[in-house]
């Protein structure tokens, strides 16, 4: 029975290889056919009329970006605020409004408050944006909408799904950062062209903060109450006490280390460094390394959890 099946499978396989070949997988299908005839353990693909085929990993991740984009084209208006307006609003309220009460002094490096706070607000906004996009929307893919399960029923794998999600956040946060940079330019918040470098720094910090949240989302099975706690106990304090609005030197020394382990602080130091100067090469490398390690480590973790949840 099994033997007969294999033989006829092989026959139909070679018969239809031509059709499959035209859609683009000539090489692999061809070799499969021949090895199938010789080795008993090798795969013997049964004849196909299906139009489906496997795409490369990067392409698969990009297809996910395409799906996000389809969604975004319909709903971009409702995300205008969090991605575009919020950081600008903060810049207006804190940089200009609150800043009008601040005298330029040693705390701000002798600069006007708006210059001091503008690069840090970009980082803070990017981080918040990325964390928001990595929490409930990702959990929804697993739990409410469950579209992640639909995706992994196709040739796209869980890892590629995660990759697409990360690329999408890079793009979205990137666009938001560019918008912010341009608006801040109108406010006269930039001192030099170093502002251009603040955008990639903001995106990098955002990814380093967003990907761990994706890992958390992949291990969340309830309604996501823990995100509310994360926003309040982790994200808000991180933004408030990471040197965004005032130097961390004002934080009592005993708890200042909390700022040092905050990725927002590392991002902020880098962002201020490229616009306002005063950051040495080694410290800069250190900040980059911190963010890189955090992003890499959490991406590996997230990948593991994505597989654990989607392939059971």
């Amino acid at each position: 029975m099994a033997n007969g099946g294999t033989a006829s499978g092989g026959a139909t396989g070679s018969g239809t290889t031509g059709t499959t070949g035209t859609t683009g997988t000539t090489g692999t299908t061809g070799t499969t056919g021949t090895t199938g005839a010789t080795g008993a353990t090798a795969r013997v693909e049964i004849g196909s009329r299906s139009a489906g085929r496997v795409v490369g990993s990067w392409r698969a991740a990009w297809l996910r970006v395409e799906a996000h984009w389809t969604w975004y084209r319909r709903y971009w208006r409702s995300s205008l605020y969090s991605s575009g307006l919020q950081p600008v609003l903060f810049l207006a309220a804190m940089g200009l409004g609150f800043g009008s009460q601040v005298e330029a002094g040693p705390a701000t490096g002798g600069l006007a408050y708006v210059h001091y706070v503008a690069p840090a607000l970009l980082v803070a906004g990017a981080v918040q944006n990325a964390i928001g996009e990595s929490s409930y929307p990702v959990l929804s893919g697993f739990k409410w909408q469950q579209d992640y399960y639909a995706v992994t029923a196709t040739p796209v794998t869980a890892g590629q799904l995660l990759g697409g999600q990360i690329i999408w956040i890079v793009l979205r946060v990137g666009i938001a950062c560019v918008v912010y940079t341009l608006v801040a330019l109108l406010f006269g918040a930039w001192l030099n062209a170093g502002a251009l470098l603040v955008v990639p720094i903001g995106v990098f910090a955002a990814v380093a903060c967003g990907v761990p949240i994706m890992a958390v989302a992949a291990t969340t099975y309830n309604e996501g109450e823990r995100f509310a706690a994360i926003f309040r106990f982790l994200v808000m304090p991180m933004i408030l006490f990471s040197g965004t609005f005032f130097p961390i030197e004002q934080i009592p020394a005993a708890v200042r280390w909390l700022a040092w382990i905050s990725p927002v602080w590392h991002g902020t130091e880098l962002a201020r460094g490229v616009t306002l100067g005063g950051l040495g090469g080694w410290p800069a490398l250190g900040h980059l390394a911190f963010l890189g390690v955090l992003a890499g480590f959490s991406a590996a973790l997230a990948r593991r959890y994505f597989y654990r949840r989607l392939v059971v």
Binding site: A107, M236, L240, F241, F245, Q250, P252
Partner: peptide, 15 residues
């Protein structure tokens, strides 16, 4: 309370 703390140690020193 976190906000208040931030104003106590941070913003309040600037203004």
């Amino acid at each position: 309370l976190l906000y208040l703390l931030a104003f106590q140690v941070g913003f309040g020193k600037l203004v």
